[in-house]
Simulated scan of single mutants.
Amino acid sequence: MPNDNLHVAAAIIVRDGRILAAQRSHGMKDGWELPGGKLEPGESAEQACRREIREELGIELGVLWPFSTVRHDYPELSITMDVFCAPVPAVTELQMLDHEALRWLDRDSLLSVDWLAADLEVVRSLGLSWSDVFEDMHL
């Protein structure tokens, strides 16, 4: 069992019926992830999600809907990841401030990238509930 516990927040960024997958330029850079990052002391998961997306992609998120919380043990650390759905307008221009690559994926291409293990759990859940999520949130 890993010693280090990390609490992170991530966003399922939604635009035109697709979600954003990001590949980091450092750290766990071989896998794809939902953008986001570590909570800072005294910060809520929602605050961290907004800050991390601003720092990584250069955009301000509007409405956030809680989607799930995932706990995953990697060999070197355990993470708790709070995940939010975040719709963004089609005209939103993303910057690659912390990533090597970005891809927009629809439901049929969700598994076309090599997701990090914790993110894969979320993506599989999203794939199963895709219609409900997108209908309920008017996305």
Rank of each mutant, 00 (worst) to 15 (best):
D119C: 10
I59R: 04
A90N: 09
P41A: 01
D98K: 12
W32R: 05
Q23I: 02
L61Q: 02
L102I: 08
L20C: 04
H26R: 06
S129I: 08
S131I: 11
L105W: 07
L57S: 02
C49G: 04
T92G: 09
M96D: 05
T80L: 06
A118H: 11
S25G: 07
P66V: 03
L97I: 05
A86T: 05
P89A: 09
V70I: 08
R107S: 09
G42D: 02
E33W: 00
E121T: 13
R50F: 01
V91T: 14
A117Y: 12
L102H: 12
E52S: 04
L102N: 06
A45F: 03
S68E: 15
W32L: 00
V83K: 03
G37R: 01
R107L: 08
L105F: 07
K38D: 00
A9K: 01
N3Y: 13
C85L: 08
V133M: 12
D132K: 11
F84T: 05
R107Q: 15
L128D: 15
N5G: 14
D119L: 10
V14A: 03
R107C: 11
D114C: 08
G36P: 02
F84G: 09
D4Q: 13
A90V: 07
S25N: 11
P87M: 07
D136W: 11
L105Y: 06
Q95S: 06
D82M: 07
H138A: 15
R51I: 02
M28A: 11
R24Q: 04
H26M: 06
L94Y: 04
Q47T: 01
V122D: 12
N5Q: 12
W32N: 00
V88R: 07
G31M: 03
A117D: 14
P2K: 11
D108A: 13
D106Y: 14
L105K: 06
E100Y: 09
G31D: 03
A117Q: 13
Q23A: 02
N3H: 14
L102R: 06
H138L: 14
V63S: 13
Q47F: 01
A117P: 09
F134S: 10
R103H: 07
N5R: 12
H72Q: 11
N5H: 15
D30R: 12
A118D: 11
G31S: 04
Y74D: 15
H138N: 15
A48S: 02
Y74F: 11
A10H: 10
A21Q: 05
V133D: 11
E100G: 08
W130L: 10
V122Q: 12
D82Y: 09
W104Q: 09
L110H: 10
Q23S: 00
R54N: 03
E121N: 12
G62I: 00
F84V: 08
R24F: 01
Q95C: 06
H72V: 08
D4K: 12
D98M: 09
A86S: 09
Q95K: 07
E76R: 13
L77H: 10
M96Q: 13
A101S: 15
E100P: 05
G58D: 04
L105S: 10
W65V: 06
L20N: 09
V133G: 11
S25P: 06
R103Y: 07
E100S: 07
R18W: 07
L105R: 06
Q95H: 08
L20E: 05
E52A: 02
M28N: 12
W65P: 04
V88S: 08
D106V: 10
W104V: 06
